[in-house]
């Protein structure tokens, strides 16, 4: 079963993430993914995350396919205009990539090339619509395609975003534009997540709850202050703060497992964003009972 079929079958799916390096040294990342391929259903490949110039997600996704892993090809609207976006989608299709995750993307000024011209010719919703249209054999200008691609398009949603209604409206528009699954921003507050899912589940589109491994109390505080829609409860910050440096991964795994267990009955799967701690993903999954 591929990722799409698993989601449709109702299996609780698990996705993880690969952040391509700044440079060509991609193999260690692929190997790490291979380690856990039995437990993880698909791997997101990020597209110049945080607006930092890196190896591209298209090539990396293709390498994953060669190794027998299933990628979720992430695409942002920051760096390409509508011609390049459509062309890259076609390229992805011929390389065997089916799963695409469409995002607007961070602004260029937040990354390591703040002088760059931000494109944002399209945004997440319009790009999702473009994906849908390509699947119907038409490009944006209405021209017929010679060879029609197939995609399983997804999008992101941020459960902790305020005002939440605005986020729900946007989620609905994304579904309308063609999103078939959602991965969420990091979730730390299960009560709030449950409330969000009450509304989100009405749409009948699978949602994968986001898990980001906490590395320290400082990181938690930083995210609370700076990352939109993220709210790490005091309790977790305290647990991280009280742990010795060497015990921190253990505590972090424990927290992640607690969250994952709590999410099992709320959503269709989880999406783990290890942010460099890929090596602990197996432990997280073990601790969560997978």
């Amino acid at each position: 079963m591929n990722f799409e079929e698993k989601l449709k079958s109702g299996k609780f799916v698990i996705t993880s993430e690969i952040g391509p390096p700044k440079g060509t040294n991609i193999m260690p990342h692929i190997e790490e993914a291979e380690h856990i391929k039995d437990k993880v259903d698909a791997f997101n490949v990020t597209d110049l995350q945080s607006s930092v110039m890196r190896l591209g997600s298209l090539a990396t996704s293709h390498l994953l396919i060669e190794k027998g892993l299933e990628p979720v090809f992430q695409m942002t609207c920051r760096d390409r205009n509508r011609l390049a976006l459509q062309s890259d989608l076609l390229s992805a299709a011929v390389l065997g990539i089916r799963n695409v995750l469409i995002l607007t993307g961070d602004h260029t000024v937040l990354g390591d090339h703040p002088d760059a011209k931000p494109v944002f010719d399209l945004d997440s919703i319009s790009l999702l619509k473009v994906v849908s249209d390509l699947m119907k054999g038409k490009d944006m200008a209405g021209n017929e395609l010679d060879g029609v691609p197939y995609f399983f398009p997804g999008a992101v949603v941020s459960p902790g975003y305020e005002p939440q209604e605005l986020q729900i409206i946007k989620m609905e528009k994304k579904i309308e534009a063609g999103a078939k699954f959602f991965q969420t921003q990091a979730v730390y507050d299960l009560v709030a997540f449950e409330k969000f899912m009450e509304k989100a589940s009405k749409f009948g589109v699978p949602v994968l709850g986001g898990i980001v491994l906490l590395k320290s109390a400082g990181m938690a505080k930083f995210m609370n202050e700076n990352v939109a829609g993220v709210n790490v409860p005091e309790r977790y910050i305290k647990m991280m703060a009280e742990a010795d440096k060497k015990d921190r991964p253990k505590v972090s795994i424990q927290i992640a497992a607690e969250l994952i267990k709590g999410m099992k009955n709320l959503c269709s799967g989880i999406h783990i964003m290890p942010l460099g701690w890929e090596k602990y993903v197996p432990d997280v999954l073990d601790a969560s009972g997978f």
Binding site: T108, V109, P114, D115, A116, K117, P118
Partner: peptide, 14 residues
């Protein structure tokens, strides 16, 4: 009677 500038210019959009 000026020559074209030989420097490579790149715009800063920020």
């Amino acid at each position: 009677k000026k020559l074209m500038d030989k420097n490579i210019d790149i715009r800063n959009y920020n």
